[in-house]
Design a protein around this nucleic acid. Structure first.
Lengths: 339, 339
DNA sequence: CTGTTAGCGCTTTCAG
DNA sequence: CTGAAAGCGCTAACAG
């Protein structure tokens, strides 16, 4: 069967059926394989489909099936390298299982935006949500209210008060402990911690982990941006606080700290050792390389999406929550303490 | 009207209508405002909607309207900082106009993936596409074949042979020229160019721009990764090639070059000046700060999405294509040439 | 100002 | 092995 197929024309299943001399039902079944179709008939139908470059209308399929085969990802900022890595993993996992991915930035917890991705679940635009909290856990109430309906998986930041919520996180305490051990072994005794957002589990865990070796580490809170690392160092120097090492809760703040230390005439690592967290690309791009703790962000995204998709497909997986390992990466910004 | 609303239950417009004692049509119109509804009736309907937390089913709306209010973004890797910035801009623009964003990574030009996002346009899962080429323009044939049907806008990399295709790019030649001027003014005479993928317009433009001041610059091709910058510098040093400055086509390769130069005992910028391109976050995070050319990636994404959405909404905008300015950012990796 | 009816394009009983 | 018909949840003629 040969038919005219102007570019840009889209066809309905009815039209395909007509061209092949069968019913839409048969076309549907040759595509889905959900019931047997005579070999010759099937071949003819497939021929027409190829000829017309027919693709079933997504909305009709979704309306009929009640599922969209799309998952949503909510992150504070898709343009941030940190969250970009998570997104990468989520996208990989989704694509591998033939799901689409829609992305929602949750900038500044803008309530309009929040509404938007909750609605995506409610109105069926997405079948489930991978959620990454930004600075606070405040949105979690609403989150769980909706979680009862649509599958929800937390990526990166677990919430201890909600153990039922599946999540993928990392052994942050362990990573921070390894940092403390490393610095202690190098002979350091006075440490500064430039921590993340106070109150978040991720922050508390790392503070606690580090304290196993530095129980009295002076702990200041930054906002994960380079500038805050620099500013906190300025304050310390201005007040003649003595320290020989700095542990920042991410690489950006660590680099900000290094910048300010150098401006003050201090050498890194000869005078002050600095350790970051995350091991994003920057850590190995700078000279000397930044000593840091590797967290596999892509894998976090991949696993979170994996759990979500398992739920969607009715695969019961125990335990739902996963804690991925971290690894201390020693590069050039740590050295023995000056004696 | 008060109704029981178990959490997780979703309602149809029919049910809302019944609860409010009106027809679905009236509910539809009180929501859309497309025809007048008696104030009291409308209030009652809105009451029920609020009570039941009713949200119209997305698939039904889309099937009926023939539009999805979703745009797609195709990038080589959503987890890469460079493309992440574009995605951020696209997301912003889409969200501002109440469109969803679905993301497709085009890793290695995997044909299965390509098929996938073309289908998204054809089957109506997305209304249009923002496309960012990776290394070659090979996929463009198919791209344009489909572009006749669904709106398509190129972000970052324009294709000169297809001037009809709307695109958002940057004044790369101008940026590269400014780099050349800056280095020439510092007294440099022998320059190395670590270029991007050969054959791409973006690469050729920058090579040409730089040549206005360094007509004989030795030009080598990298792959935009740090490692290639380092490797090419190794090769040059091993062959005793003389040069006093390096212009890399992105910041990663510039940092790779710096790394290797320092390993070879050369100081940056005292012995060799290095310039990058893009001005991503890293450029200001390193010490000394990297001299580079700023390209506003977020704006590129924003504008590309803007053009796409204008088309989708029937807003005719001339000219469709946009070329955004670049700006030389002088930081600490460039200095006068040694005499 | 409001309701009835048809239909978007598909899948799925149900009936041959 | 195949088809007719109903219906997913909504919007838009068309009629009052």
């Amino acid at each position: 069967v040969t038919v005219d197929n102007p570019p840009g024309r889209t066809w309905t299943m009815q039209e395909v059926a007509a061209a092949a001399g069968v019913s839409a039902t048969t076309v549907s079944h040759t595509i889905s394989g959900k019931r047997h179709v005579n070999a010759e008939t099937a071949a003819r139908v497939r021929g027409v489909i190829a000829e017309l470059e027919y693709v079933p209308n997504a909305q009709a399929v979704r309306l009929q099936s009640g599922r969209s085969r799309v998952i949503a990802l909510a992150v504070p900022d898709i343009g941030h390298w940190y969250f970009g890595r998570i997104a990468r993993g989520v996208e990989e996992a989704a694509d591998a299982r033939d799901y689409g991915l829609v992305v929602c930035s949750t900038v500044n917890a803008d309530p309009r935006r929040e509404k938007r991705y909750f609605n995506m679940l409610k109105n069926g635009a997405a079948d489930g949500l991978v959620y990454t909290t930004s600075r606070s856990n405040s949105d979690i109430d609403e989150l769980t209210r909706h979680a009862r309906n649509s599958p929800l998986v937390l990526a990166d930041e677990a919430i201890p008060t909600l153990p039922d919520l599946p999540s993928v996180s990392s052994t942050l305490a362990e990573g921070a402990r390894a940092v403390g051990e490393h610095l202690a072994n190098l002979g350091h005794r006075r440490a500064i911690v430039i921590a993340g957002y106070p109150g978040l589990n991720s922050t508390e865990e790392r503070i606690a982990g580090f304290r196993t070796h530095f129980p009295n580490a002076l702990t200041l809170f930054g906002d994960y941006e380079q500038e805050s690392g620099a500013r906190l160092i300025s304050d310390l120097l201005a007040n003649d606080v003595q320290f020989t090492c700095v542990f920042a809760h991410n690489d950006s703040m660590a680099l900000g700290a290094i910048q300010r230390l150098r401006e003050a005439g201090l050498r890194v690592p000869e005078d002050v050792s600095v350790v970051g967290f995350d091991d994003l690309d920057i850590a190995s791009l700078v000279t000397p390389g930044l000593t840091t703790v590797r967290k596999d962000m892509v894998e976090i995204g991949r696993r979170a999406a994996g759990i979500l998709l398992d739920r969607l497909e009715g695969i019961d997986r125990h335990p739902a929550s996963v804690v991925l390992p971290t690894e201390l990466i020693v590069r050039g910004t740590t050295a023995p303490a000056k004696t």
